[in-house]
Design a protein around this nucleic acid. Sequence first.
RNA 1: GCACCCAUAGCUCAGCUGGAUAGAGCGUUGCCCUCCGAAGGCAAAGGCCGCACGUUCGAAUCGUGCUGGGUGCACCA
Length: 581
Amino acid sequence: MNLFADIRALVVSSVDAMMASGALPSGLDLSAISVEPPRDPAHGDMATNAAMVLAKPAGQSPRAIADTLATLLAADARVARVDVAGPGFLNLSLAPSVWQSVVKAALVEGDAFGRSTLGGGLKVNVEFVSANPTGPMHVGHVRGAVVGDALARLLGFAGWDVTREYYINDGGAQVDVLARSAYERYREAHGLEPAIVEGLYPGDYLIPVGEALKAQFGDSLLDKGEQFWLAEIREIASGMMMDEIRGDLALLGVTMDVYSSEKALYGTGKIEAAIQALRDMDLIYEGTLEPPKGKTLDDWEPRQQTLFRSTAHGDDVDRPVQKSDGGWTYFAPDIAYHYDKVQRGFDALIDIFGADHGGYVKRMKAAVSALSGGRVPLDIKLVQLVKLYKNGEPFKMSKRAGTFVTLRDVVEQAGADVTRFMMLTRKNDVTLDFDFAKVLEQSKDNPVFYVQYANARVNSILRKAREAGLQVDDATLAQADLTQLSHPAELTLAGKIAEWPRLVEIAARGNEPHRIAFYLYELASDFHALWNRGNDEPGLRFLQEGNVATSTAKIALARATSVVIARALGILGVTPAEEMR
RNA sequence: GCACCCAUAGCUCAGCUGGAUAGAGCGUUGCCCUCCGAAGGCAAAGGCCGCACGUUCGAAUCGUGCUGGGUGCACCA
C-alpha cells in the first residue's frame, strides 16, 4: 500500500465530486494536485495544495474551494480532522487506524512493501563502470559502480525492467599500450630486464599476465617485432584484465547483465550503419571546425573532417566522427553503441559517467535524440570524486599498483557493505569524503552503524520475545491488535514507515538512489528515539511483561521497521546486520 | 572565451521536479544517565539558502545577469 497515493486518490475523487455537483467547473486538470507530509508536524499528517492549484483555472478563491473540499474529505473514515490553513492548504490529520494499517501492510507484504509499478515495465538500460580493461579497478571507479548498481536495484523495485550493462572500451590505443606493457612482463618472465618506459603501465598486476604469456607462447615471441604479437597479446591481456575487473565488481557485490565490447563494433558495419542513419537525416557533413576560443592551441590547424551536426540536437558545436586520416574518432563507436541500445528496444537509457566526462553529455544526448527520433530519453549521471582520508589525513596507498588506491584496497579495509552505504550518502554530483577510520566507527556520527544498529535492536527484541515464549513470526504479528499502538512516538515511527513507498517513487523518478540512504537514517532515527523513550517511560518499551497483546503490537511495529530497513538496505546492496559486534 | 557541475548554520551535508516559521549530524552551551533498554539521552543557541533582478497566490527550488570554486573544451578514450 502507498498511503500517500491512497489519500491523493481520495482528494482527486472529492474534487471530481465537486465538479460533478457543479461546485467546480468540469474538466479541470488535476495533475498538479499533490499530497505530501507537511514540514511542520503541527500541521497534521498530510497536506494538499489542491485548492490552490485549482483556484485560478476554476476562477474561485482558494479558501472557498478549500472549505467545500474540507467537508468532503472529513467524511472519509481515514480522516480525523481537516484544517484550512495559510493561503489555502488543506491539512489532514489521519486516524490512528491508518497508521496501524500501515504497520500491518508492511508485515503482510514483507519484501514487497513499497514496491511500485511506476516504471510500468518499461525497459531501461543502466550503463555504468565501463572502465578501460587496462588494469584493476581503482577507487575512482568504486562510486560509479555503487551508484549504478543501487540505481539499477531501485528502478527494478520501482517497476522498471532493468538491464545493467558494461561497455568495454577495448578499441582504442590504450589497449595497445596494455599489450606492450604486458609484452615487457612477458620478457621479464623469461628473466630479461623489462623496459617499462614512460607511457607504459607500470603496475605489477601485469606480472601474472607476462607469466601466462610465457606459459602459452614459451620463448617464441621474444625478439619479435610487435607486428607479430600485438593483436594477440592485446586480446589475451585485455581478457585477463576484464576477468580481474569482474572479480573486483564481485567484491562489491556488483554483477552486470551485459558486457558490450567497443572492439566488437569494428568490422561489423555497425558504426557505418549508425553514421549512415545520421547521414540520412542530413546530420553528417564534411567541414572544418573553428579553433576553440580563449584556449591556446599551438599546433592548431584547420582540418577537413566528417562532422556530426550535434548542434541540431542541443550541442554547442558539431563533433567530428572521423579523423583526417579516415579512421573513426572515439565518438563514432560510442554513437554506434548507443544506437545499438536504442535498437535493442530500450525505452530509456541511463549512463553513469565520471565527472571528468561532463563534456560528452551534450553530444551523447544529441546522438541518442537524433537516432531515436527523440523517443528514447538518455539521462547521464555524472559521479563526482571520492576523497580518501584516514583519521582526517589524506590517504594514499596501494599494495598492488603503487600509485593508486584500488577498489580491492577499499573493500578490504572498509568492507563491501560499509563502502556501498557510504558511497550513497551524497548526491552523485557532489564530491564525497571517505574516511577509513570514521566509516568503521561505532557511533551515531556513522550513518551505516546507526542504521545497522537499529536493525540489530529489532532482532534483539525478537530474540528476547521468543525467550519469553511469545509468537513473533510475521504472520502472528500481522494479526496483532494494533489499536494498542496509540502513543504519538509510536505513530511517528509508523508514519515514517508509511513514507517508504512514496520515497521509492521519488527516488526512482529522479534516478537518485542517495535518497534511500537518507531515508534510512531518518527511519533509524525515529526508531532509536522510540527505544530511548522506553528508558524513561517503561510503557513505551517493546516488551511488556505479562501483557501479550500489547507486547505483540509493539513488536509488530519494531518488526515492520526492520522489514523496511532490510528492504531499503537491499536496494543499496547492503546486508542488514542481525547483531552488532 | 564557451559548456557543464557546485555554492544552504562555525564544519560536513539533506531539502520531495514551486509550498507554510528552511532541516539533520558534528561542534558549542545547559541539564540528565552511569539500575547492560550498553556502544548515550533531552534541550537550547546558531541562517541575507553566494549576489541582483525577474516569473506568481508563493522561490533555497524556475528564468536572466553577475561573483567565487571545480571539471572539460579539434584528428586521445
